[in-house]
Nucleic acid binder design. Structure first.
Lengths: 224, 224
DNA sequence: TACATTTTCTAACTAGTGTTAGGTTTTGAA
DNA sequence: TTCAAAACCTAACACTAGTTAGAAAATGTA
């Protein structure tokens, strides 16, 4: 206990939290240094003691958001047993991702609202972080696919975009107090893996698809 | 052809298109009447002949976006045979939804970027439209579920949020010229219905990459 | 042509923006 | 208590925002 933080760090965090909240509500240009200062119980000029510009502030907010998610997911995956299957890894990643973005919801939402409006240089820097995170997912999916856990025709890049898009949308409607985030996460995982019609309530291994590969495509095509 | 539009309508649309594009790039507060005017080859003051305020403009942009999607999906569903199954309805809705949001991409993206920053009254009005659209999806899902096409444990509200979240994210990464929107839509439908591990090998796109050529759109993807 | 209507422009006003320089208070170690 | 460093504040500067009133141009009809 009694972790001794330097005073400046506390103030910085106060400013940062305020900034995330205000950016989330008013967007990049709509956010005023004076409004942030107000939220942090400061005067506008004082912010410049901690951050040297508005761009500096938004940059910090953006990075915190994606880093929180990356760290959480990385840790959760690392805690998994060596021989964990793709299904388990995906479910774990989904739970971790959702927990993280809900927990730092102000930062996540601020990012969503502000990303397209921020100066190019700042966006570029942050995009590198986001791409690294994307790579983590790509690897999970690729590994599972390599093990034959997915149907062979699955497009992994699309799958990743689909999954992350759906997950990130969650901050828009999730309200604490109701259904727990773990519940939501597990239901999501179920969608991702088995779809709506998927019968496997529990089936860990759909050895059906990949292995035996029935070539009767044309018959199926009409069904759509 | 030669539909005779009143001149004012043409000008209005020019202003509207310009507004959508600028709002999309700079957000609500970041967008200047002068910038919009510039894009529409006008002077700032002239906009006020067509719209009585900036709020009036953004409100119009927001409504157009959601209405385009609602109309397109409604038509596509209506064109289906009476006895179409849930699977077909969902796929149809996905294709229509994706086509629409890509086509009016400026409006859709403007909405995404601006929605949280717009005055409460405007947001409320637009939210009503969005809820109506959500109800369409809820009905599709409920009907399919009632017919026993989904696994019994599926949570339909979550499913809807999941699906629409993933679909709406598409505008962020989809770039015309590569994989066709219909391809993407069908792959999405496949995810939604069968999941990643789902056995149904259909995936149904004629000739995987929209032609033999591995055009390999280097999907400039963003992670989050 | 003439002339009323529609459309656009000009020029300005008020209010609020990010940022800064320099002063004031608070803090904590000696 | 002393006093320098850290943290904060005040007041202002240069600039840009949405909006408006009135003049000017474009348009269409008689």
């Amino acid at each position: 206990m009694t972790k001794k933080l330097p005073k400046s760090a506390i103030s910085q965090k106060r400013v940062l939290d305020a900034a995330a909240k205000i950016f989330r509500d008013y967007g990049y240009a709509g956010t005023t240094m004076r409004t942030i200062a107000d939220e942090a119980n400061l005067k506008a000029g004082s912010i410049y003691y901690h951050y040297k510009s508005k761009d500096d502030l938004i940059s910090a907010v953006l990075d915190i958001g994606i880093n929180a998610v990356t760290d959480r997911v990385t840790e959760a995956l690392a805690a998994l047993p060596e021989d964990a299957g793709g299904r388990q890894r995906i479910e774990t990643a989904i739970v971790a991702h959702l927990s993280a973005i809900i927990e730092v919801g102000d930062y996540t939402l601020a990012t969503r609202r502000v990303f397209g409006q921020v100066p190019e240089a700042i966006r570029a820097k942050n995009t590198r972080l986001r791409d690294s995170y994307g790579a983590i997912w790509q690897k999970i999916l690729a590994d599972a696919h390599a093990r034959g856990e997915f149907r062979t025709s699955a497009n992994l890049t699309l799958a990743r975009l689909f999954i992350l898009g759906a997950l990130n949308w969650t901050v828009e409607w999730f309200k604490p107090g109701g259904r727990s985030i773990e519940d939501v996460a597990r239901e999501f995982a179920s969608f991702v893996l088995d779809g709506l019609s998927g019968r496997s309530e529990n089936a860990a291994f759909p050895a059906t698809a990949a292995g035996a590969g029935p070539k009767r495509r044309s018959a199926r095509v009409r069904a759509l």
